[in-house]
Amino acid sequence: MAMVQRKPPLAASIDPTAAPASQPVLTVDGVTLQYKTPDHLVTATYRVGFDIHPADRLVLLGPSGCGKSTLLKAIAGFLKPVEGSISLKGEPVTGPGPDRMMVFQEFDQLLPWKSVRENVAFPMLENRVPRAEAEARALDAIAKVNLTKFVDVYPHMLSGGMKQRVAIARAMAMRPDVLLMDEPYAALDALTRRKMQEELLQLWEDVRFTLIFVTHSIEEAVLVGSRVVVLSPHPGQVRAELNCHHLDVRHQDGPEFQLLTRRISQMLFEDKSVGH
């Protein structure tokens, strides 16, 4: 489509004379990711680059198989880029760690042998947060996701949405530099998903954490994100970087929201038809 303009990729280093408003927390620079299946070497992403600034809600959006989850795993430290670099506050990412807590799509990410309170406190206790402080922070985070009534319940007694809330509380209580979410609402029913999206935005209003959120839903991307990185189909490359910080639940039926979602779906659709 002629009206879609390709933006130049962001420079990894920021010109100090330009007096930037903030330094990026996390920089992804020219990252190519490959993984092995029993009989193929698959390239998941090709030279992907973007920056995340404090309090960004960056959404990685793309069709399934575009490598967005693989990219998030690389940011979490589970995968090493074959080309390019990922750095957190200027330090290269070498492995998984509690400075990049992750919320997974699967409900079994909670430890079944620990109650809600113990689950949320566990990562803090394992990282030398004093017990009293860890308990207090855990209760605070549980209150923020509206689960105070369930602090002493074991995960198997919670619904899917509640489990995801606990996982979010657990990640937030750790106060990571970046919060990573890998399609956290994909396995939820539509009503619960909508509620959780609104809750997440409310949480962000309160806490102002830095978020990287992976999804394949265009509506969810525009709703949850302040900035959307659109990835092209396999292998994933940055197709567009779009701002949507001004659009939230209240605008969902408005023309601007509709225009943006249509623009993104055209990008994805057009790329798909080229690919096949």
Binding site: A76, P98, M102, Q109, P123
Partner: peptide
């Protein structure tokens, strides 16, 4: 998932 969760806790 549980393994990855454990490793993001720094274990």
């Amino acid at each position: 998932t549980l393994r990855m969760a454990g490793r993001t806790f720094g274990l």
